[in-house]
Design a protein around this nucleic acid. Structure first.
Lengths: 106, 106
DNA sequence: CAGAATCCGTTATGATACTG
DNA sequence: CAGTATCATAACGGATTCTG
């Protein structure tokens, strides 16, 4: 694998993960949890509604989050990870370990 | 590990990797290669000098790139990965595989 | 050669108010 | 409740010029 193709492969992942809040959302949904929009708002107080919905929509478009709409009044919408999303979380494990070792050093 | 601590751990990595060119530089230096500033410029034609030096400096500050100055005229400066940098490349492997599977799907 | 300094347009993010 | 719309600002990236 050439340096460039490897980099472009990782770059696609980075593009999916980039965005101030994607990882926070990802890990809040990790483990099969199903959360409502307002649950996520409460879980991540620092995020604005605009950012929350924007990042969720992008993650949905990237196939790592599933949006479940219950047609009722008042509206109820739930979010959870797709299988790809779960797999992504696990794939981040090596990076987590690298980071942990690093902080231990410092 | 709580979702938040996990996310913050990965976020530190993401912060290190974020920047339009970090990964490209990383993979160009992977495998113990030692390149001059001008080598990197040639290897990555699309990058501007400003971005190249900026990203290199940040990577140096993050301890993943080493800068070697040869005091001579004309100046000669070389860059290579630190052990942490090499380890980071390897830690990206799981992500690469995830991305590869995904593209195969699509 | 290897930068530093400056200007400038684009994009990302945030605050606020409004709605079906 | 779960958004949308609008405006403002901050961060990012690029082009150009200059220098030890």
């Amino acid at each position: 694998m050439t340096p460039l193709s490897a980099a472009s492969g990782v770059e696609n992942v980075l593009r999916i993960l980039e965005g101030r809040w994607k990882l926070v959302i990802l890990f809040h949904l990790f483990g099969g949890k199903v959360l409502r929009f307002s649950d996520l708002e409460r879980a991540i107080p620092a995020i604005s509604q605009k950012m929350l919905i924007q990042q969720l929509r992008q993650m949905e478009a990237d196939g790592i989050v599933r949006r479940i709409v219950h047609h009722q009044v008042p509206p109820k919408v739930e979010y959870c990870l797709t299988d790809w999303g779960q797999a992504l979380c696990r794939a981040l494990d090596a990076l987590l370990k690298w980071a942990a070792l690093r902080e231990a050093e410092a």
